[in-house]
Amino acid sequence: MSEQSQTAELTANQTYNAEHTNTNNGEHSVSYGTYFMVWLGLVALTSVTVTVAGIHLGSLTLITALLIAAVKTTLVGYHFMHLKFDNIIIKIFVMVCLGIFLCLWILTFADLSFR
C-alpha cells in the first residue's frame, strides 16, 4: 500500500515538474551564493570606478567609466535579469535594441565630431 502511494506520489511530482517546466521559463534555481558573488563583483567594480575617477587619466576617464558601467550592466543583465536562462529570441531582441542604441550614438557623434 505504502509502496503504491509512493509511486503515485512520484508520478504526481513528475507531472508537477513537467507543468513547471512548461510554464515557468524552465527550471533554473540559481544558488544564493552565485547571486552574492555577482553582487560582490558589482561592489568591487563600483569601488574601481570611484578609485579610477580619482586618478587623472584625461580623456580616458570617460571611456573607463563607461566601460566599467557596461561590464556592471552585463553582470546585472546576465545573472540578475536571468538573460543567462532566457530564450534565444529574448537575447536577440536585447542585442538588436542595444545595436540600434549604439547606432544612435555613433551617428550623433559622427555628426558632432565633423561639424
Binding site: T49, A53, L62, A65, L66, I68, T73, V76, G77
Partner: peptide, 16 residues
C-alpha cells in the same frame, strides 16, 4: 532602474 543608476553615477558624480 539599477542599470540606469549604474550609468548616472559615474557620469554625474565622478567625471570632474
Amino acid at each position: 532602474v539599477d542599470i540606469i543608476w549604474i550609468f548616472l553615477f559615474p557620469l554625474f558624480y565622478l567625471l570632474h
